Simulated scan of single mutants.
Amino acid sequence: MHNGNYDVIVVGAGFAGLACAQAIARAGKRVCVIDRKRDLGERLHTTGILVQEAMADPLLVNLPARFRHPVPAVRLYAPGLESIELTAPGYRFHTTDTPALMRWLGEQAVRADVDLRLACAFREARATAEGWHLPGVGSCRYLVGADGARSKVAAYFGLGRVRDFLYGVEHEYDGAGLQRPDALHCFVSRRWAPGYIGWIAQTPRGVQAGLARRLRQGGEPPPDLAAFLAHVAPVVGLSPDRKPDSVRAGLIPCGGPVHPRMRHNVLLAGDAAGVVSPVTAGGIHSGLRHGADVGHALVRALDSGIGPQASAIRAIPAWRRKRALRWAFDHLQWDWPFDLLLKSPPLRRMAEQIYFHRRGQTSSAA
């Protein structure tokens, strides 16, 4: 505790918020993280699937092996359930026990001298001569909104808001096993997942299965995960009759970075800043990196006495190609071309670029 006086207060104890706070704490600055949850493992909106690049992040480099399961291959399925296998030499994904991972990250933050306050929601901030005062929390020079796609900090301060979303639902099956536990099973289908995909993967706890679709105005029904699982059960070996042990759902940003992301000593980070791939909806690695960058920029500002500059924070990817693919996915997605072109070299190369950022190796199977 720092008697309510901090250099920085971070709202949101997700990946970006904790990365930001630890970067600040390691520099010897006073930082507090508040989160409305009572338990960092509850009400999660992330799948917890980590790309290999994320495993080298300072927050995850010492992640215990019991919290992760390596997945070296991607099995990509066309709507008719024909598939190809994608790999890249030396590359692997990692699925996680997501609730345990988030609790572990919270413990690491406390050990790094971050004042972590749970069951503490952001409601208002009052301007002071030095920065901001949050009633019931304390005062700070800088405030960071790392509170997700529906950021209350962004709304309160009139910063950029995330407008484009996917809506995802995910089930966890404790103790379950897949026929191919070494693959991330991804299903492309306009019927089940318009604008996105379905996914099934082995985790340290069992199996996770999810489905997401583009969220549009007009109130579409939520993804029909039960019917989807009944459809794909024969190719993955997961019983469609089994009841899930836990369920999570939520909004996933897919429109790219928001503007503005900084104003009056208030900055946005991670999902709140729209730092999520428009195509893959992968935000963990980007959130870790962006959160740490925001933290480092604030440390420099505190040391110099000069407010943080946008140029001091690593540029967020423009994702021009992925935004073009997002538009195509939203407007031109049909099932029959994907069934027809699944094994074609152009589609294979595009899939390798999306999953591995480089060429890989493929094999096909009926």
Rank of each mutant, 00 (worst) to 15 (best):
V236I: 14
G237V: 09
G237H: 08
L238T: 11
L238Q: 09
P240Y: 07
P240R: 05
P240I: 13
R242I: 06
P244A: 04
D245A: 09
S246R: 15
S246G: 06
V247F: 14
A249M: 08
A249K: 00
A249T: 08
G250T: 07
I252M: 01
C254Q: 07
G255A: 03
G255W: 05
G255L: 04
G256P: 02
P257V: 08
V258P: 01
V258R: 05
P260I: 13
R261K: 12
R261T: 15
M262D: 07
R263V: 01
H264S: 13
H264Y: 04
N265I: 04
N265D: 14
N265T: 10
N265W: 05
V266C: 01
L267D: 00
L267M: 12
L267N: 04
L268V: 05
L268P: 02
L268R: 11
L268I: 05
A269C: 10
G270P: 05
G270Q: 09
D271V: 08
A273N: 04
A273F: 02
G274T: 03
G274F: 01
V275Y: 00
V276K: 00
S277F: 00
T280S: 09
G282L: 04
G283V: 13
I284Q: 03
H285K: 14
S286C: 07
G287M: 02
L288I: 03
H290Q: 07
G291A: 10
G291R: 13
V294S: 08
G295Y: 12
G295N: 09
H296E: 15
A297Y: 02
A297F: 03
R300V: 13
A301C: 10
A301M: 12
D303L: 03
D303I: 02
S304C: 02
I306A: 04
A310H: 12
S311Q: 13
I313S: 00
R314A: 13
P317T: 05
A318W: 01
A318G: 13
A318F: 03
W319N: 00
W319E: 00
K322D: 14
R323T: 12
R323D: 04
R323N: 06
R323I: 10
A324R: 07
A324D: 07
A324L: 14
R326W: 08
W327H: 03
A328S: 11
D330T: 06
H331T: 15
L332A: 14
Q333G: 09
Q333M: 15
W336S: 05
P337M: 01
F338R: 05
F338I: 14
L340V: 06
L341F: 11
L341M: 10
L341K: 01
L341E: 08
